[in-house]
Write a protein that binds this DNA or RNA. Structure first.
Lengths: 191, 191
DNA sequence: TGCATGTTTTGCAGTATGTGCAACAAATAA
DNA sequence: TTATTTGTTGCACATACTGCAAAACATGCA
C-alpha cells in the first residue's frame, strides 16, 4: 500500500466531507441527496458509499485516536487517574482548535436535525468505549468491569459538555474549558 | 376523541412493538423488514408508519414523563438537588422493574446492532434534556445556562450506568443500583 | 334506526438510501 | 512493457419512508 494512494484516499474523503458539510449547511439535511454530494465532490454516486457507510457519516469529523506514546505514558503514570485522563484526551481536541471554522459549522449543522444530534451523541459514545478500554488496561481490570465503565462515562460526559461550552462561547481554548468543567463537576459532587 | 379510540391506539402500538421486538430478537435487525413486522402485527405496511416514524422506533420503550405532582415537589424542595433529582427519577424506572423480561429483551437487542445502540444512547439524551429543563426551573435559570446543562448531563450519565448495571447483573432493583452508582461517583470525585 | 361527521387504515405511486457484483480504469511493482 | 493489486463505476435490486386520496370504520345525533 503506497503512501500516495493513502493520501489520495484521505484527500478524496475530505473533498466529500467538505461538499457534504457545505451542501447540508446551505440546504438542510433532508434537501441534500447522496447524488448531489457525489456530484459536488466529483465522484460517482456509488463511490460515495465506498467512503461512507451512510449519508450522515460524511458530516462527522473522523474518529480521533490516541497516539501510542500518549497511551504508554498514561498506562505507566501513578498520578491521579482523572488528571491523567484529561492530559491524555486534551491533545485530541487540537484538531478542533486548529480548524475552528469547520468545527463550528459542523456543530451548527448538528443542531439542525435530530438525526445529526443522534450521530454526535453516538460519536461521543464510541469515544467513551475507547476511553473505557484504556482505563481498564491501566487499572488491570476487564473491559467490562464497573470501575472503567463508570469513570469512562463520567469523563466523556465532562469532555462533551466542555466542548459544547467551547463551541458556544467561542473564546478560550478547548483545554481551558475542559479544566474549568471538571472543576465544576468536583464542586457539584463535593458536599 | 373517545377513550375507546385512544386505548385502541395504545393497544395497536403495543401489538406492533411486541411483534417487532420478538422478530428482531429472533432474526436480527437487518433480517426483519417493516413488511414482516406489519404482517406479524396484523396491520398494513403503510399503517406501521402511522405509528412509528422509522423501523427502529418500534424497538424502544415509550419516552418516560415525570408526573406533575413529582415535578411540583421537586421544584419546591430545598434539600440537596442531587438527592431530589434521584428521588424524582427513580419512579420512572418502575416500568422496567415491573416488566423485567421485556426490558432485558430490549436491552439484549440493543447490544446487537450499532443502530440500536445509537438509539438507546439517543433516548438517554432526550431524557437528559427533560432533566435539564426541570433543573433550570428549580434553579430559576435559563434552559441553556451552564449549571443545568452540566448537572443534567452528569445525573443522566449516572442513571444510564446504573440501569446498565441492573440489566447486567439482574439481582436487586433499579433504585438500589442508582444509589450505589451515585455513591461510587462521589468517591471518584472526592479527593 | 339511519344519516352525517370525524378518524383511522389502506393502496398506490414515487423518491431515496444502501448493497452485491462484475466490469473497468488506474496506479504500482516487476 | 506486462502482471498484479487497488480503486472506481454502472447496474440491478431490496428496503425504508412519504404524500395523497379512497375506503373502511367508529361515533354522535336526529
Amino acid at each position: 500500500m503506497s503512501d500516495l494512494r493513502e493520501r489520495r484516499k484521505l484527500r478524496t474523503a475530505n473533498t466529500i466531507r467538505v461538499a457534504a458539510v457545505n451542501l447540508v449547511h446551505a440546504q438542510g439535511l433532508d434537501n441534500v441527496t447522496t447524488d448531489m454530494i457525489s456530484e459536488a465532490a466529483g465522484i460517482s454516486p456509488r463511490t460515495f458509499f465506498n467512503y461512507f457507510r451512510y449519508k450522515e457519516a460524511a458530516l462527522l469529523p473522523p474518529t480521533p485516536v490516541f497516539r501510542q506514546e500518549a497511551i504508554d505514558k498514561f498506562l505507566q503514570s501513578r498520578a491521579k487517574i482523572l488528571d491523567d485522563l484529561i492530559e491524555l484526551i486534551v491533545p485530541l481536541t487540537q484538531f478542533f482548535s486548529e480548524n475552528p471554522k469547520m468545527f463550528r459549522k459542523l456543530f451548527e449543522i448538528s443542531q439542525t436535525h435530530p438525526k445529526l444530534v443522534m450521530l454526535k451523541i453516538n460519536a461521543f459514545h464510541e469515544f467513551e468505549e475507547m476511553v473505557r478500554r484504556v482505563i481498564a488496561k491501566r487499572l488491570k481490570l476487564r473491559d467490562d468491569a464497573e470501575k472503567p465503565i463508570l469513570i469512562a462515562a463520567l469523563v466523556t460526559t465532562g469532555i462533551r459538555i466542555a466542548m459544547e461550552r467551547w463551541a458556544n462561547d467561542g473564546s478560550g481554548t478547548p483545554d481551558t474549558e475542559i479544566k474549568r468543567t471538571f472543576e465544576d463537576i468536583r464542586t457539584i459532587f463535593a458536599q
